[in-house]
Amino acid sequence: MSNLAQNVAKLARIDLPDDKAEAVQEDLEKVLKYVQQLEALELPEDIEPFFGAIESVNAIRTDEAQPSYPREEILSNAPDSDGQFYKVPSVFEQS
């Protein structure tokens, strides 16, 4: 578990400086330790998980194209765009 904070931060795309990792790790471990009480809990074998708080089915819509939003409205919240595209820093790392 020693690298838990760093591994998870990487997977979650959250920059975690080395000097903060230990404190975060401790924090995470406190909660994990608490929730680990579930592991020991014995449940009936055939119990089905309950994933959503609603168990109905078939919310379905008709296939029908409707007008999209104006592009400027969609792009207006973007931190960087050229009016046509969203722009993001290069996907490739400096080699």
């Binding site: 046509q84 595209f85 290069s90 490739f92 400096q94």
Partner: peptide
């Protein structure tokens, strides 16, 4: 993506 190797921004 910018394929020139100049690390220009990607467009989405």
């Amino acid at each position: 993506h910018d394929e020139t190797g100049a690390q220009k921004p990607s467009k989405i």
